[in-house]
Design a protein around this nucleic acid. Structure first.
Lengths: 153, 153
DNA sequence: CATTCAATGTTGGTCATGCCAACATAGCGA
DNA sequence: TCGCTATGTTGGCATGACCAACATTGAATG
């Protein structure tokens, strides 16, 4: 039998079973779905905005540096994303009375509403993303990834 | 007990068990390790170059469009990455005698050597990346991700 | 055979995520 | 008081991924 000549749906064997390769493919798919969903229903918001709104809704007002640490987003990117959220009136920035430079960021009612809409999008994407797996397999995958990431490194 | 005030090592509960979130965190870690490894030992090459060299070494000479389909890299990015590989004499581009526009890309001996060096890097990164998991867990993770990605979507 | 269509390589953009450096300023600790 | 750290901001870079347009070529269709 001659070698197969199909161009696509094949992966060099060097990559095939590599965890880093699989994770990068999974991420490409996941972020594609997420961007499509955010683009369609998110009013131009992206992952950074969702993370920040989620942190504010869950833990209440915080300084920008605090938000950065909570969400794993760089301080400079926090600044930019908050400026966009502020221009849409989804958050408010007020000066911290006890600290000259610090600003306290608060989510607005509209921000909470928007967050709920984004939650819907994210939920839908989970289903699409995990569609090939059974519920038990989905749980196992989540557990393994959680263990992989929880361990300090 | 007052609420905890630690800034870091926490994740909004909305994100915590989400597969897309975990995958994005895993990818951030994995690509960080990979970039560090490639930067240290890869002679300025990146993931695209590795994928292309791997495909050429495994399946032999191919046209650029073929390479793009094999590796999942866009035609335009293939062009750019091949130009860089060519300038390092890791690949060669020759005109296809049977086809005017098409170019046949071949990996050179130096390219094969470089690929072997990159293999070492990638192998080392797998170990770092998967360190928190037992061998059995690593296998399960790879199996689950493979199943997740194999299914046509 | 002629015309259309698809494939090819290339150029030149865009976007999102993640970093890093530098800076001015503010607060804190030694 | 002096020096260190934290803070918000600006501006930049790298990587991966994608897209549009173009000229050219081969192949398919009428």
């Amino acid at each position: 039998m001659p070698p197969r000549h199909r161009d696509t749906d094949r992966v060099p064997s060097r990559l095939e079973g590599r965890a880093t390769w699989l994770v990068s493919r999974a991420y490409a798919r996941s972020s594609g779905l997420l961007n499509a969903g955010f683009g369609a229903a998110g009013g131009g918001l992206r992952g950074y905005h969702y993370r920040l709104l989620a942190a504010l809704a869950e833990w209440g007002p915080a300084s920008q540096a605090q938000l950065g640490r909570q969400t794993g987003i760089d301080r400079s990117d926090v600044t930019a994303a908050l400026t966009e959220l502020e221009s849409r009136d989804l958050i408010e920035r007020t000066a911290d009375p006890d600290h000259g430079r610090r600003k306290i960021v608060t989510i607005t009612a509209a921000g909470v509403d928007q967050l709920h809409r984004l939650d819907q999008v994210v939920d839908g994407v989970q289903d699409d993303f995990l569609a090939p797996l059974t519920p038990a397999e989905r749980d196992r995958l989540v557990t393994l990834l959680t263990r992989l990431l929880d361990t300090p490194h």
